[in-house]
Amino acid sequence: PSSNTGFLSELLQGEPEESQVCSRVVASLLREQASRGKHDRLNTFSIMCKMADQTLFGLVEWARNCALFKELKVEDQMVLLQSCWSELLVLDHLCRQVAYGMDGSIYLVTGQKIDVSTVLSQAGATLSSLVSRAQDLVSKLRALHLDRQEFVCLKYLVLFNPDVKSVQDRRQVERTQERVNRALMEHTLHTHPGQSDKFGQLLLRLPEVRSISLQVEEYLYQRHLLGDLPCNSLLTEMLHAKHT
């Protein structure tokens, strides 16, 4: 267990503080608004996209600073991130709700809260369904008492996916996946001995995260085709990469 504890604390050290993430996104949004005249303010959807874009920048920076990720060539780093960027965004959102959210409201990366009912009353059918599905998953993760170590392990399992096509050093990605899997299993057994099969239950959430993320991508791509997404963003580049 001691080596496992050491391994998990190494993974945790790479985690940015929520306050840092929040202030970085808020600063970016304030700069953006300040650069705009009174009559071309960003609408709500564009602000949300900017938040997602800034959060994505942060996730790429997080991955880039992971010691295990650094062991991979840049080509492999790109392929893995292009495959899982939307899952990382969804997982990041879900875990923020578990850590800071309240029932019935959504906690944004900027620290603001929005009532789910408000979102559902204004959003279209697709977005409403996405929000509801995400909230259901938040409830499941809350019921599982997901903790920070488990959240980090799930992020690593999403990022180090050996099934991604055209990964060159597949064996290295598999090794990391196996190591993190073992660390997650030992951690859940050690911290929640009474909660039978917490490990299995956590892993069962990953296909749900994947499914929601694919729907998010499709939704964003449709909005992009309508010209609703801010251009020249990491978000649009990642969307394009998947559709080229």
């Binding site: 920048f57 840049v74 580049e237 990642m238 394009h240």
Partner: peptide
């Protein structure tokens, strides 16, 4: 513009500069 230019830049940028 290369389709992955920004991601490539972010993963390759040199922090020391």
């Amino acid at each position: 513009k290369k389709p992955n230019a920004l991601l490539h830049y972010l993963l390759n940028k040199d922090d020391t500069k």
